[in-house]
Amino acid sequence: MKGVRHYPGFLGLTILCLVILYAPLIVVMAYSFNGSTSITQWGGFSMRWYVDVFTGPDAKRFGQAAWNSITIALMAATAATIIATAAALAMVKGGRFRGRGASFALINLPLMVPEIVTAVASLIFFTAIGLTTGYGTILVAHMAFCIPFAFLPIAARLEGIEASYEQAARDLYATRAQAFRLILLPLLAPGLASGWLLAFIISLDDFIITNFVKGAGMETLPTAIFGSVKQGIKPNIMAISTLMLAVSVLFVTAAYLINRKGRQTP
């Protein structure tokens, strides 16, 4: 059994893969605890840059940027999840109907178009219709490109739910709305949760599109960080990066656990 699965050297490459992926992150994490103001010299273990993140001269700017990022991500992810759920119901349960192929292509459009093209197109669009760029434009742009990311896990989950559950409920005289609310929705919950988390992280992380459609004085965390690192990597950026890393890991772990739990109960 084991023989045909085993290839010499594959373990080594896997470990190489992990080293490449983790080395930069670990280095930045380690240096975020550097007590020295210079990023090149080690000045002993210190939490000063974490204190600086919350109280330093940039604290207000980064705080505002973080607030913008989080509120936009919350709203965009929620809207995208609702829209994607409706779309997934139609695509998975709706059978064949006119425009199904076109709809499928449309849902996946934001995935297929390179990000820089989406960014440019959005900038042109908002300028052409005379909409002032700012919080609102970032929000709608994020909403649109988060839909496919929310759609994928929801549709995948929906495909795994046998129609017989719902059918049984309908046979017992539940209305379609009741069957949906009491049977389908609870079964779908893990898919909804991971779809929402995916959309949330995608929105939170986006730099290129936001950079093009943000208006005057508007920053999200990634654009604020970009503005800072352009002038050189500073220790407080490493602390912010480590904090963001922790948030991301927390979210992925949550998504992973929810998904695993969802898989155990059908």
């Binding site: 992150l25 730099f207 960080i225 963001m244």
Partner: peptide, 14 residues
């Protein structure tokens, strides 16, 4: 899942 920008900057630092 870690911000692409942060990963790129980390690599540059490394």
């Amino acid at each position: 899942w870690v911000n692409l920008l942060i990963r790129t900057v980390s690599l540059k630092f490394l």
